[in-house]
C-alpha cells in the first residue's frame, strides 16, 4: 500500500508546491506514486520522475485533461484510489476543488490544510482562521488529505528518473466545460513560494501609490501581496490577496506595509519566519505579531527603505 499525489501543473511545468506535498508523503512512508494528468504534459511527467523519493509516475495525457475540471479529475483519481492508503493533493484552489469530491466518492473523510502529520492516521490542521489547531484521527482506510504546503519543507534532491507508466483511462465531464482563463501575469516570484513577500494594505490609498510596494518588492526580489482591503479597493487584482480567503504564505521575511492586521489577514501570513510591520498607527494589531515594527508614514519610510537597499 502506498501514497498517491495528484500533481498540480500547467501542462508545462509542475507547480513548485509538488515538492512540499512530496515531503509530506515521505512522512507517511510506503511507495509514492505521482499522478500527472493533463494534455501534452510529458515535460511535467519527466520533471516529476526525477524528484527524489518518487517510485512511479502515472501519466494520463488526454485533450480532456487540459484543464483540471473537478468532475473528470476526481473520476480519474477514483479509478486508481483503491491501491493507495493515502491520496495527497496540495491545498490550493486546484486541490481544494478536487479532494472533497474524491473523498465523498470513496465514502471517506477528507482532512483540509494538513499542517502536521503525527502518524498515518493522525493529523493537525488549522481551524478558525488559524486561531486554533485541531488534531484529528481519521477512521477510514483511505486518507484523503489536502496539504498546507507552507508547513512542509520542499524536496529539492533529484534522482535518476523513475518509471513513467502511461494510463489510458479517459474521464470526460459531460456536465461541465472549461470556457476560459484570465490569468494575472507577473515577472516577480510566485506569491505562494517566494522567500520574501511585501504586502500592501489600505494605507497605500490608491492603485497608483501601490506601485511603491512593487518597487520595494523589486528591490528585494520579493513577491507582492495585499490585504483584502487593498484588493476590495481595487489597488491590485484579487489573486494578490494574502489571508484566510486568499493565499496562505509562510516566507522567510514578510513585510506588511499599511496593513492593520485583521484576523482575516493574519491567518494568511502569521507562520512567516520574520514579520516586519510598517504602519502609522502604533496600536495596529499587526504590531502584536510583528518581529520588527516601524511606526511612521509609509510614504516616507518605504522610499528610504528602497534607497537603502539600492545603495547596498
Amino acid at each position: 500500500m502506498s501514497t498517491l499525489i495528484l500533481v498540480e501543473h500547467d501542462n508545462q511545468t509542475m507547480h513548485p508546491a509538488t515538492r512540499n506535498v512530496l515531503s509530506a508523503a515521505q512522512q507517511l512512508g510506503g511507495e509514492i506514486h505521482m499522478l500527472v494528468a493533463g494534455y501534452q504534459c510529458n515535460a511535467v511527467a519527466e520533471q516529476v520522475a526525477t524528484l527524489s523519493g518518487v517510485h512511479k509516475v502515472l501519466y494520463a495525457d488526454k485533450p480532456s485533461y487540459e484543464h483540471p475540471l473537478a468532475e473528470q479529475m476526481s473520476d480519474l483519481v477514483l479509478s486508481l484510489a483503491n491501491s493507495f492508503k493515502a491520496i495527497l493533493i496540495p491545498s490550493s484552489t486546484f486541490g481544494k476543488n478536487i479532494a472533497p469530491r474524491v473523498a465523498a466518492q470513496l465514502d471517506v473523510a477528507q482532512v483540509s490544510d494538513v499542517s502536521k502529520i503525527l502518524d498515518n492516521d493522525t493529523f493537525e490542521h488549522p481551524i478558525y482562521a488559524g486561531n486554533a489547531i485541531e488534531k484529528v484521527r481519521v477512521l477510514d482506510a483511505i486518507k484523503v488529505l489536502t496539504i498546507r504546503t507552507t508547513a512542509f519543507d520542499a524536496v529539492n534532491a533529484a534522482q535518476a528518473a523513475c518509471t513513467i507508466e502511461t494510463l489510458d483511462k479517459e474521464c470526460i465531464a459531460q456536465s461541465s466545460q472549461f470556457v476560459k482563463h484570465e490569468l494575472s501575469k507577473s515577472e516577480r516570484p510566485d506569491l505562494g513560494t517566494a522567500k520574501i513577500v511585501v504586502s500592501g494594505g489600505r494605507g497605500l490609498q490608491s492603485a497608483e501609490k501601490f506601485k511603491l510596494i512593487e518597487e520595494l518588492a523589486d528591490a528585494l526580489g520579493a513577491a507582492v501581496g495585499a490585504s483584502r482591503a487593498a484588493v476590495d479597493a481595487g489597488f491590485v487584482p484579487n489573486d494578490y490577496q494574502v489571508g484566510q480567503t486568499g493565499k496562505v504564505v509562510a516566507p522567510m521575511l514578510y513585510i506588511a506595509v499599511g496593513i492593520s492586521g485583521a484576523v482575516q489577514h493574519l491567518a494568511g501570513m502569521k507562520d512567516s519566519k520574520v514579520i516586519v510591520a510598517i504602519n502609522k498607527d502604533e496600536d495596529a494589531p499587526i504590531f502584536q505579531i510583528a518581529d520588527y515594527g516601524l511606526v511612521g508614514d509609509l510614504f516616507e519610510l518605504v522610499p528610504q527603505l528602497i534607497a537603502h537597499l539600492k545603495n547596498k
Partner: peptide
C-alpha cells in the same frame, strides 16, 4: 476565483 486569476466554466 483560482490561484493566479480567474477561470470560467459552464455547468449544466
Amino acid at each position: 476565483e483560482i490561484d493566479g486569476g480567474l477561470e470560467t466554466i459552464n455547468v449544466q
